[in-house]
Nucleic acid binder design. Structure first.
Length: 279
DNA sequence: CCATATGTTACTCG
DNA sequence: ACGAGTAACATATG
């Protein structure tokens, strides 16, 4: 579920709640697959008594630096949520883990689909090493983006699938890819190898624009049912109403008024303006 | 009952 | 070995 702006929103919120620097009093892992292949007891033991000295985001991962030099790295996948609660609060229906702090607050991890993962590593590159560049860094220039695209014209992988691959560019998911391609006026089925320097310039600007807007609006929540995005304060994001194509099939393109179409590209629901984005 | 879901990865087939 | 496409993970919702 969460993409770069949503994960950033969660990190920002957890920092605001002042859990960084607070001692971890108790760790409960309720679903073994969450920490596999590590044992739940070993995972809890390793985290208990530690302090989180720094909290940051890399791609869609939440990276917590621990005071013993290890890293607690989590990925929310499709339906994971971290919510700060009072430690006395009772178990939630979809609660899969709970980290209780010395100050009486706790971080509850809810995950309907149980796809999320917790990692505890000495070397964070073990988890983060293969990721592509961060799209909001200054170094993510049009030239860099252009240089990353495959140059062999025989490679027919489409630009949408290429952008979703985290080893190419880190942090983009289905919503923001559709939004960025619309903004850059590029059809999602265009071969990645066919993107020109001029298009890479437009795409770089579009990617940064849609991600920054997502963060400014505290993330995208598509609905208000269980499993929709909420941040660590339990609140929904406000970015959905600003989306231009995603989930807007049948509605007019905000730029030209043509009717937005939905199809399947790279096995994902894909939204385009057929007038602005030509193959 | 069927299709779909904001993500990732293992597997299969050429 | 490699790349591309598909299945799988587990559960809720329309």
């Amino acid at each position: 579920m969460p993409e770069l702006p949503e994960v950033q929103t969660v990190v920002n919120e957890i920092k605001k709640q002042k859990l960084v620097g607070e001692k971890i009093k108790d760790v409960e892992i309720l679903v073994p697959s969450l920490v596999a292949p590590m044992d739940t007891a070993a995972f809890a033991k390793a985290l208990k008594g530690r302090k989180i000295t720094d909290l940051s985001r890399r791609a869609k991962y939440i990276v917590a630096t621990l005071d013993d030099g290890n890293y607690f790295i989590s990925h929310l996948r499709m339906s994971g949520h971290f919510v700060t609660i009072d430690a006395k609060e009772e178990r939630g229906r979809f609660e899969r883990a709970r980290i209780t702090f010395a100050n009486g607050k706790a971080l509850r991890y809810d995950d309907i689909r149980k796809f999320g993962r917790f990692n505890l590593v000495k070397d964070k590159e073990e988890i983060l090493g293969k990721l592509g560049p961060e799209p909001l860094e200054k170094s993510f220039t049009p030239k860099l983006l252009f240089s990353l695209f495959p140059k062999d014209k025989k490679v027919k992988l489409c630009v949408k699938a290429w952008l979703l691959d985290q080893t190419n560019v880190a942090g983009l998911g289905n919503i923001y890819v559709d939004e960025a391609l619309w903004l850059a006026k590029i059809h999602p089925e265009r071969p990645a190898a066919s993107i020109t320097m001029r298009e890479a310039e437009a795409l770089r600007d579009a990617i940064q624009s849609v991600l920054k807007k997502g963060i400014a609006n505290s993330g995208t929540s598509l609905g208000h049912t269980q499993g929709n995005f909420i941040s660590a304060d339990g609140k929904h994001g406000n970015n959905a109403e600003t989306l231009n194509v995603f989930h807007r099939q049948g509605k007019p393109c905000p730029r030209c008024g043509a009717i937005i179409e939905k199809s399947v590209v790279a096995q994902r629901g894909t939204h385009i303006c057929p007038n602005c984005q030509k193959k």
